[in-house]
Design a binder for these strands. Structure first.
Lengths: 156, 156
DNA sequence: GATCTGGCTATGGATAACGCAAGTCAGACC
DNA sequence: GGTCTGACTTGCGTTATCCATAGCCAGATC
């Protein structure tokens, strides 16, 4: 059981659609290990360069490179801040576009917790009611949507 | 505004947690370009080896390698099938674990459609009611959950 | 038995991602 | 002016990922 596809996606046969195919560019922006781990840490609340590279466990060089990419992609932005007695520095905070990745990061965390048991799985709960939190697929009318009820079409 | 963290995640300070940190292993399994594109095609309904590598636009060698990984990770499984007058072959179908990646793939498709306009963005609608489909964060009690209302804790 | 086809495997080489180590730079503090 | 620290940058070697090409194998067809 899969989603339903329409338009170019359905008509292409068995050919690739090249680099304008859905996900191609997106994965170029956020679809690598370090970028997703940095986004995870941003979700956890890390903002300073030091925190980010140390918690992710990559070198400063790689962190700097990926952070530049994420800023360019509009996922993070650099904001100046100043602690008393310290000089002005910059912190990396999630933009609205970055926050829109919540279902993705949360979905991956949830998937790992269930299906990759060695992954130091996490438990996520709703602070308000204590119930388990999960990424779900819904429609704007409020229905829970099964995978087979999704129609994917190319935009004009 | 970020999620709330508890337990080891909150106490670790600015150290990395190594390869048992949430997402590390998960991203090793499904967190690379080709794997995610193959999962996308599986969502779209492709099952045969030829379809998969051609639609993704990758060589047979790379596709075979990643498909082995996805089968080993339990995301896909090989099932024998036979078309009349043809010999027995194998197709790759999503396992329940693979289907559990729906919010992730759908979330990435949705993010790309909004924030990466050159990504050949797609429109996703609910077949039942025609409303737009989106990945959302909910709790088991049925509440919509804001990012700041999520408590992430390490499992024991 | 020879051929063909879908589904792979094998080899070699390019590019990208990463780790390690060292260096730069700006401003607070002495 | 000199030192220190957080935030990077630079250079180099290694590993992972990818492409291109070629070859293998099983079974249906001829």
């Amino acid at each position: 059981m899969s989603v339903q596809v329409a338009g170019v996606l359905a008509e292409r046969g068995d050919r690739a659609l090249g680099d304008r195919c859905p996900l191609e560019r997106t994965l170029g922006l956020v679809g690598n290990r370090t970028a997703l781990l940095l986004i995870r840490e941003a979700f956890y609340g890390a903002t300073r360069f030091d925190q980010l590279w140390q918690r992710v466990g990559v070198t400063e060089a790689v962190a700097a490179q990926r952070l530049r990419g994420l800023v360019a992609a509009g996922v993070l932005e650099k904001q100046p801040y100043q602690e008393p007695g310290q000089r002005t520095r910059h912190e990396y905070v999630l933009t609205p576009a970055g926050h829109d990745l919540t279902p993705v990061v949360l979905g991956l965390l949830q998937w790992g917790a269930i299906h990759a048991p060695d992954d130091g799985g996490v438990a996520m709960t709703h602070v308000g009611c204590g119930a388990e939190v999960r990424a779900a697929v819904r429609c704007a009318a409020g229905h829970d949507v099964a995978e087979s009820e999704v129609l994917v079409a190319t935009r004009k």
